[in-house]
Design a protein around this nucleic acid. Structure first.
Length: 452
DNA sequence: GTAGCTAAACATT
DNA sequence: AATGTTTAGCTAC
């Protein structure tokens, strides 16, 4: 990246010099308000260090043996069944020397060292670096581990390979704005250690530092959902477009191979099926008619990590062993069913959303009643095992239906109330007629539609 | 049985 | 064409 030591930042830019985006993607001019050149940006702060998820690690022993490099808590499944969120790397340095993001909303997608905000307030610049990964094609001597680390500037031979930081992020849509303090945990120190499955005599509760090799091996074995989670956690706003996710996989995993496209399919599959990943739309600046789709981590996933995608699988029970004569035909047939079902389900979901809207409107009339019970509700909520936006497990939901409530991608205002949730309702009548009932066999239907 | 990967069909953008 | 959704076969544990 060309970060250099020195008390006096030198901000020079030659005319015609190619500008790069910090996440490696070209930007529209309108989006280029924050751009750094690859070579002439000079870090005004000497002896700096970073906090935040860092991807792409030098593998040199000197790097790993450096005391300043923190240990890793390689988040694994936690007691609540989630993959732990491993969003932050900390340093054993004083906070004044650390680079950390203070305000996500302030971070532009790209940066320009000539931005007056930087020149006049240089501390703001590197305070907000969150991600750091190599982009050069030749990675032969650089570990592409997706694990997060902290490049140590003392070893510039390694460090110089980091041609840019990733500030890939776009402003969240209004309705996606995070509540205050939502990302507070992002700056909280998190240790990166091996999961406690080792032979330590504490029963595995203690953790130990991973070696670089272990991290690489571990990362290579990580499931897609976890890797996607990690990718999204590596950017400040926890959002990426699909192509950025692809690129992250190319650079940080062994899955992103060019020889086949199956891994892309798998990524899309995981994005679609895992409730930790939510789809948002962002209007393209300057052209309100165009929108780009971004994938963003759900709030609970930021806090708690991601669950396995298969957990969201429809539990109809794949008939193992029920093979047709032709494997190919079976495959095609299953896909065809999926496609047809997808279409049908899309329709039914759409109808269900309309129903939900109607239900919500009806329930709004209960606002008054809810306010009467607010205090008791609050006390009940306090007894919740999980935070309200944390999706319940199968067990918690106690659904007779095999459908896990994965794609109730509800906006905050339309989330089921804690007071009254559809899961709690076993039947409803309108004008004396049953609107829906929850049959004992679990085949609950909502106005003739399957219950989701 | 669960988790994960993968292929595939189909829909949507 | 790229992206998104869904089903389901298969393997490993």
């Amino acid at each position: 990246m060309g970060f250099q030591y020195g008390e006096n930042p030198v901000m020079s830019r030659q005319s015609g010099q190619q500008m790069i985006s910090l996440d490696g993607y070209s930007r529209d001019q309108s989006d280029q308000h924050f751009v750094a050149t690859n070579s002439d940006f000079q870090l005004p702060t000497p002896n700096y260090s970073l906090t935040g998820p860092i991807t792409g690690l030098p593998q040199s022993p000197s790097f790993w043996s450096n005391q300043a490099v923190t240990s890793f808590n390689y988040g694994d499944q936690t007691s609540n069944g989630y993959y732990a969120s491993s969003s932050t790397v900390t340093r054993n340095t004083s906070s004044s020397n650390c680079l950390h993001r203070n305000h996500v909303s302030d971070i532009p997608r790209t940066w320009d060292p000539y931005d007056p905000r930087i020149i006049n307030n240089s501390s703001m610049v590197m305070d907000q670096v969150d991600s750091f990964y190599p982009t050069e094609e030749d990675h032969s001597d650089v570990s592409m581990s997706p694990a997060m680390s902290t490049p140590e500037l003392g070893d510039r031979s390694d460090h110089q390979r980091y041609s840019h930081t990733s500030l890939s992020q776009s402003p969240k849509m209004e309705e996606e704005s995070l509540p205050a303090g939502e990302l507070d945990g992002f700056n909280q120190p998190t240790q990166f250690c091996l999961p406690g499955k080792d032979d330590s005599d504490d029963g595995g509760t203690m953790s130990r530092e991973m070696t670089a090799v272990e991290i690489d091996e571990h990362a290579a074995d990580e499931p897609y959902a976890k890797l996607i989670h990690r990718a999204l956690m590596s950017v400040p706003n926890h959002s990426m477009i699909l192509q950025e996710i692809y690129q992250w996989f190319r650079e940080n995993t062994t899955k992103g191979t060019p020889d086949n496209k199956g891994w892309m399919n798998s990524i899309r599959h995981n994005l679609s099926m895992n409730a930790a990943f939510r789809k948002t739309e962002r209007k393209i600046f300057g052209d309100e008619t165009k929108k780009s789709t971004e994938w963003v981590l759900a709030d609970f996933a930021v806090r708690d990590g991601v669950q396995s995608t298969t957990r969201y699988r429809k539990g109809t029970g794949a008939k193992k062993g029920a093979r047709s004569n032709s494997h190919i035909r079976s495959r095609q047939d299953s896909g065809r069913r999926g496609g047809l079902s997808a279409s049908k389900n899309k329709f039914t979901r759409q109808r269900f959303r309309e129903q939900r809207t109607d239900t919500r409107r009806a329930l709004q009339s209960y606002d008054f009643l809810q306010s009467q019970y607010q205090s008791s509700a609050t006390s009940n909520m306090g007894a919740r095992h999980n935070s309200p936006s944390t999706p319940p497990s199968h067990e918690q939901m106690g659904l007779a239906s095999p459908y896990f409530n994965t794609h109730m991608k509800l906006e905050p205002y339309e989330r089921p109330m804690d007071l009254i949730s559809l899961e709690d309702v076993q039947g409803a009548y309108l004008n004396g007629e049953p609107v829906f009932t929850d049959q004992q066999d679990g085949s609950g239907y909502f106005d003739g539609l399957p219950r989701y």
